[in-house]
């Protein structure tokens, strides 16, 4: 029982790291980026290549996944995404679906369609018993890492200069520009951060979520649930939503395996009917 709760929390934390980049692009920059999962997949595959082909340590793979994915993100933002900030949502949806299709086919071409496996370092494998609760070492690692990331992110958004610049740029881009904030650079950096976090999440999730070319489509719904249910105006909303989703999903799969997915989709639709702007929408927010 408590083990399930623990696994659920780990899963939820992972989902949060994967999805918080999306909550930034979608919520703050108002860009419907369905290709977010593709960045996560890129992070996962970077880990797989580095570990299985070059035999590098798992701990090196995590920052590498973050940096490389952030770099890809910034490249795409500068070349393609930037042109679509002002477009209609339909255009953004089509564009990002196109990107997803391309990434799926490209990964299939280079890496093959099979499930990718990595072997974790020995100290992260297995479980230990803690007052009768079975705790997976790797899941504990994920929880600690993700919690640290979340706190850092929250502080970065609320306490740093960059955070205030970002919030200003989002609230009113024109005024922010007038005050001498380079909105375009702020957005590019934010996008890089979001994709980098997705890449990191993908790297961390290779073991738990599995990794194959269909990853972006398979987990798209989860990311979108986190963001839409959590609301798009803060970090706390998606965080709580991700935790709830993680726990509900793990518990649902364990107790009622037949109905697991129904519950999640059903709850999502219900929340969207009752609170179209998410559970934790800011008053008067956009």
């Amino acid at each position: 029982m408590l083990t399930i709760l623990f696994d659920g929390i780990a899963y939820g934390m992972l989902l949060f790291v994967l999805a918080c980049g999306l909550s930034i692009t979608l919520g703050l920059m108002n860009f419907v980026n369905l290709a977010h999962g593709a960045f996560a997949m890129a992070g996962g595959y970077i880990t797989v290549i580095m570990m299985n082909r070059y035999g590098l340590s798992f701990y090196w793979c995590l920052p590498a996944a973050f940096l490389v994915t952030a770099l890809i993100g910034v490249l795409l933002e500068r070349t393609l995404y930037r042109r679509l900030y002002k477009s209609s949502h339909l255009d953004q949806v089509l564009f990002s679906i196109g990107l997803v299709f391309m990434s799926i086919a490209a990964v299939d071409y280079f890496m093959g369609g099979q499930q990718q496996l990595i072997s974790l370092p020995p100290e992260l494998r297995g479980r230990f018993d803690f007052f009768g609760v079975g705790i997976g070492r790797y899941r504990l690692f994920i929880i600690v890492l993700c919690a640290a990331l979340t706190i850092a992110l929250q502080l970065a958004l609320t306490r740093t200069r960059f955070g205030s610049q970002l919030r200003a740029a989002v609230d009113d881009g024109r005024v922010a520009r007038g005050l001498g904030i380079n909105v375009s650079v702020v957005f590019a950096l934010t996008f890089a951060l979001g994709s980098g976090l997705a890449g990191l999440g993908g790297a961390l999730g290779t073991e738990i979520l599995g990794l194959d070319p269909n990853f972006p489509l398979k987990f798209l719904i989860y990311f979108m649930i986190v963001v839409t249910v959590g609301g798009t105006s803060s970090i706390t909303g998606p965080f709580v939503a991700a935790l709830l989703l993680g726990i509900a999903d793990v518990a649902g799969k364990y107790y009622v395996p037949q109905a697991g997915a129904f519950i999640i989709y059903g709850v999502m639709i219900l929340v969207l009917i009752l609170r179209p702007h998410g559970l934790f929408a800011r008053e008067g927010g956009r």
């Binding site: 419907v32 949806v93 979108m224 839409t228 989709y265």
Partner: peptide, 21 residues
Amino acid sequence: RGSDLTRLMTTFGVAMLLAEL
């Protein structure tokens, strides 16, 4: 109700629900 995004999600969710069913 809701914005484009909410519509995207609800229509998507309904389709996924049926697929699961």
